[in-house]
Design a protein around this nucleic acid. Structure first.
Lengths: 251, 251
DNA sequence: CGCGATTTTGAGCCATGTCAATCGGAGTGG
DNA sequence: CCACTCCGATTGACATGGCTCAAAATCGCG
């Protein structure tokens, strides 16, 4: 993570055709994540596109910030991000992981509560949200609130992990959460999913050193419970993993 | 913490005179906490009293829940509470501490996101809040939102503590936070404050074992940085403590 | 092939958890 | 007032987890 890089922003109309194809597929996943309750009907994607302002692309390590001084909502279409705290001595803590389909409030220009950092290449849309209430139709507003509430819930789970689970438990607990979330947006199979994070990202999220995280991974791999390779994860025994980590499937 | 105990609820008019005196003093502290921005003017307390519905008293260990199935806002007048997660194997994690003057959303009857538990005898007021918007005057609404936003910020700090600080750092960091918050409501002096928590509560908050917490306390005590005794804390060297814990004073 | 980033491994040390026992104060019944 | 009990604080002994330093192995990429 270097200095805040320039962010490329384009109006959607500027996208060339091949990019558009990719964009539409990604948008499909994102819509599944946002419209979990199916309030928007079958034409959700096209309707949502109407509300969207512009596409923003951030390189890995880029800081996501609102252009204005106040917080604005962003909606991830593709890529992963994380809410990150940095201590003076460079220790880092990722407080939550943000996945395709997630909505989050990007900090305003001056603020420093918790930076949002792109962990991979990240494409997100700036959306009118809670800050401009009544500007958009009801169901849209509701969906966003639901998603933000879920994010808050997940932060409690993360505290549990950090405070009360052992190393291997934390790791498994997080992987199960990520898997469940990716399944919802259609980016995970029954037992596997792509995990575009370095072990350092995971370690920063789980409050451990990379070295130890690596050892825990090895242990779980050797015990045959899961497999991590090529940026992909395979959960070999979901039941045992869930038991190991005191994981309860989200409602 | 045993089974959910019966909660005594009284209309405020039922309070006898001596209780009323105590209540008014406590309310004074709570108002300082809620009306940090002084939006309510000098007659804040009396005006707030008008919005208040009823006083609820919980014994230590009591679960705070809304009477209805939906979340309701509570305002702590006196006593401490904590948002608590419990794992199947009885490990506990306190995700945030709630002090006099704090506002929080009490979980509805069925919900189980994170229980709110009284850590001492707890007196709080049920207040009309975000769930009934427009029902109350503007400034009141704003104050509540500010306080809830601050609570969210604090949870990020707590994650930092759990994930990235060492034992002694966590402890000091938390004590400094509590001190700052208590000072705002007028319940702490320049260097000391009452801490009505058992070491087990602290340990549950900091994600440590009681035994180790105790050792850390001893270490800090022996190094002369602080003093903890009789449920009271004295911070002997704020500067050094802040440096030790990478503490930055809240805005 | 060579470079930089990432993953993996080894060794040693300190931090932290667990088990178990002791201590001290507050309340209780006699 | 004393014996008793309960709860919380404190301590010791010991096992283990997790960190750091440092180096080697791998991978991705030009």
């Amino acid at each position: 993570m270097t200095a805040a890089p320039p962010t490329g922003r384009k109006a959607m109309s500027e996208l060339d055709p091949s990019t558009l194809g990719w964009f539409n597929e990604a948008l499909g996943h994102a819509v599944r994540g946002l419209d979990r309750e199916r309030l928007l009907g079958s034409d959700g994607a096209p309707r949502l596109r109407g509300f969207v302002r512009k596409l923003e692309r951030y390189p890995p390590g880029g800081r996501v910030m609102s252009e204005t001084s106040s917080r604005r909502l962003k909606w991830i279409v593709s890529g992963w991000a994380g809410e990150m705290h940095v201590l003076p001595d460079a220790r880092r803590q990722i407080c939550s992981f943000l996945l395709p389909g997630d909505v989050f409030a990007a900090p305003g220009l001056g603020e420093e509560p918790c930076a949002v950092v792109a962990l991979t290449q990240l494409d997100c849309l700036d959306i009118p949200g809670l800050l401009a209430p009544m500007a958009e139709p009801e169901p849209f507003q509701k969906l966003i609130e639901h998603r933000l509430a879920e994010a808050r819930e997940r932060r409690y789970d993360h505290m549990l992990r950090l405070g009360r689970l052992t190393g291997p438990q934390r790791l498994v607990h997080l992987l199960l959460e990520l898997h469940a979330r990716l399944q919802i947006v259609g980016l995970a199979g029954d037992t596997d999913f792509r995990l575009p994070l370095t072990q350092e990202h995971l370690a920063d999220g789980l409050g451990q050193s990379v070295v130890h995280l690596n050892r825990n991974l090895r242990m779980l791999r050797r015990s045959g419970l899961l497999d991590v390779r090529f940026g992909g994860v395979t959960l070999r025994d979901r039941r045992q993993l869930a038991a190991l980590a005191s994981w309860e499937a989200p409602v």
